[in-house]
Design a protein around this nucleic acid. Structure first.
Lengths: 78, 78
DNA sequence: AGTAATTTGTTCGTATGTATC
DNA sequence: AGATACATACGAACAAATTAC
C-alpha cells in the first residue's frame, strides 16, 4: 500500500480545513490525540505528526496535558 | 560527504569515543534515539544501527522504553 | 478532599516502502 | 544482489500534571 501523500499530511490537511471553515474555532480545543486516532483510524504517531505540522504553521498550539488549541501560541503563558 | 565507512559505523565510533573518554559514563544513559537523530542529522534507522553495534560489543545495553545505558547488560534485570 | 480518568510527552520495538551505492 | 539510509506507520508501556467526579 502506498500513497504519494503521507497519512499524516492527509490528516493535517483535514484538520487545516476544519480550522479554515470554522468547524474548529479559534482558541477552541482540537480533539485529543486518542480521539483523532479513533476517528481516522490511524496511529497516535500519525496524529501527532499531523498536529506537529499545524503547529509549525502556527495554526495551533499545544499545552502539555491540557490539549491542543486553535490559533497561534499566546505570547505569555505559564 | 563521501566515505567508505557507513554512517552508522561513524556514529558508533563517535559514541564509542564518548564512552571511552567518560563523556558517557558507566550506567549513565545514552541520549535517546530521537535526540541522536537530531544531533547528528541522521535517520533513526542509522542511530539504531550504531547502537546495535555498541550493544554487540557489550559497551551498552538497552531497556525497552527506558533507554540505552553504558556498560554490559546486568545479569539480573526486571 | 481525594481518587480516577484524561491527556500530552517520551521511548524503544517492529515493519514496510523507496532510493541509492 | 545486498548493504546502507531515510521516511513513514503502528504498537506498547510508562510518566506526570491536569481535570473531572
Amino acid at each position: 500500500m502506498y500513497s504519494d501523500v503521507p497519512l499524516y499530511e492527509q490528516l493535517a490537511a483535514i484538520l487545516r480545513e476544519r480550522i479554515r471553515t470554522g468547524d474548529l474555532k479559534h482558541l477552541h480545543r482540537v480533539p485529543p490525540e486518542t480521539t483523532l486516532e479513533q476517528e481516522f483510524e490511524v496511529s497516535r504517531d500519525t496524529v501527532r505528526r499531523a498536529i506537529q505540522q499545524l503547529r509549525e504553521e502556527g495554526l495551533v498550539f499545544t499545552v502539555r496535558r491540557r490539549g491542543t488549541f486553535v490559533g497561534p501560541r499566546p505570547a505569555a503563558e505559564r
